[in-house]
Simulated assay, not measured.
Amino acid sequence: MHSSNGYTYFFVISMAVVSALLLSVVTTSLQERQEFNRAVDVRENLLKAVGALEEGMTPTEIDRFYRSMFTARSIEGPDGQQHDYYRFGPEERPLGYVLPVSGKGAWSTIRAFLALEPDLNTIKGITFYEHGETPGLGGEIENERFTRQFVGKKIFRDGELVSITIAKAALASESPHAVDGISGASITTGSINRFLKKDLMNYKPLLEDGR
């Protein structure tokens, strides 16, 4: 009887240990996969910002392209804080720079990548990759019809960092520093105007040194 009970206890304890080990392995594997997916999502948007994302690229191809063409760096801004950015292209001849920008929108924190040409003045592209703005209104910031307006616009005017303003169509069509807004999304676009200028000021040492 005692031998039978001992075997039962041993079996239960062994199964518990094995189950715990299996759960640990599965959890670790799942976390690693989630981290990889998050990294790929960020890298996909980096490629999109510089116009290098090709249709049908696999996560592995995106990761490989990122590792071969992007270098993560940081610079101390006027606020005394370190601000991360990405250099795109060969070290000796960069093809552009990507600056992470973010701020509070109407309903959420909006995160974006703003890509600049090597002159650190002309916009190469922009992608709003994370937000919770209202679909059909503020959510239209991720629509290509909106983001492609930024391409070719300038963030400096007569040597002064002025950023890009989301404005009414009449102003946007005449200015190299403005794009047309989104109907019914004035709070969202107004928020982008504020944090885009603020974040660009944090990169001012980089932007001015490269000009």
Rank of each mutant, 00 (worst) to 15 (best):
P78K: 05
T109N: 14
E61C: 08
A178T: 04
I13A: 15
G132D: 01
I62F: 06
K104W: 10
L196E: 14
S173F: 09
D84T: 14
T147G: 00
G136T: 06
E140R: 10
L46W: 03
F10W: 05
T165K: 05
I110D: 02
A172L: 05
P78H: 03
N121H: 07
P205N: 15
P94L: 02
P59Q: 10
L206W: 04
V17L: 14
I187Q: 09
G210A: 15
H177L: 02
V18G: 09
L207I: 08
L120R: 02
P205V: 13
I155W: 02
D79A: 11
K168A: 11
I164M: 05
V12K: 11
T165W: 12
G51Y: 06
S173K: 15
K204C: 08
R67P: 08
E61M: 13
R64H: 10
K104Y: 12
E160Y: 08
G139D: 00
T189V: 05
N5G: 00
M201L: 15
G181R: 00
I62A: 08
T127Q: 09
I182E: 05
G139Y: 00
T27Q: 10
V101I: 15
A72L: 11
F65P: 04
D63C: 05
I164L: 09
D209N: 15
Y97I: 04
D63L: 08
E91D: 14
K104V: 13
T27N: 13
H177G: 10
I123G: 01
S19F: 13
R211V: 06
